[in-house]
Amino acid sequence: MRRRDFIYIAATGAAGVGAAAALVPLISQMSPSADVLAEASTEIDISAIQPGQAIKAVFRKQPLFVRNLTPKEIAEADAVPVASLRDPQTLEQRTKPGKTNWLITMGVCTHLGCVPLGTAEGENKGEFGGYFCPCHGSQYDTAARIRKGPAPRNLEVPPYEFTSDTVVKIG
């Protein structure tokens, strides 16, 4: 190799590495900042939620659905053959042991992020009695599993634990 070729490759190579390194902060600044990432956990008192009722709470600035399922809704969810589901999960896998009536999910449609209807009294719960997303018509069942429409996954279950019988700590 000629000396000149070496200098040419070394110089452009070093400049290329430098340019690539300069991109790191420029790209990384777009990611969530420390304050956004600071994981806020939320405590919710669920004592007032009667069977068949649901509330909409806030977790990480996003809606969270807490639903007290009736025995009929639980039976409906259990009656569905899991293999027939788009995102196969049982109600038991989506709830805590002994607390299968407490269905806690994000209120964010897994299609494009709208808030599904079905928490408040009189709202459209869709064909499967769970949640209905008004944006693009996704329908969730009583275990908040996707049954019809464009959404690819069940409503996400956030990490949570029961700190007592009436208080849930989300996050």
Partner: peptide, 16 residues
């Protein structure tokens, strides 16, 4: 998440 600078549209997204 990278595009929004968060998990839902918020200050970071609006500003960019």
């Amino acid at each position: 998440t990278w595009l929004l600078g968060g998990f839902a549209p918020d200050q970071a997204a609006l500003n960019r």
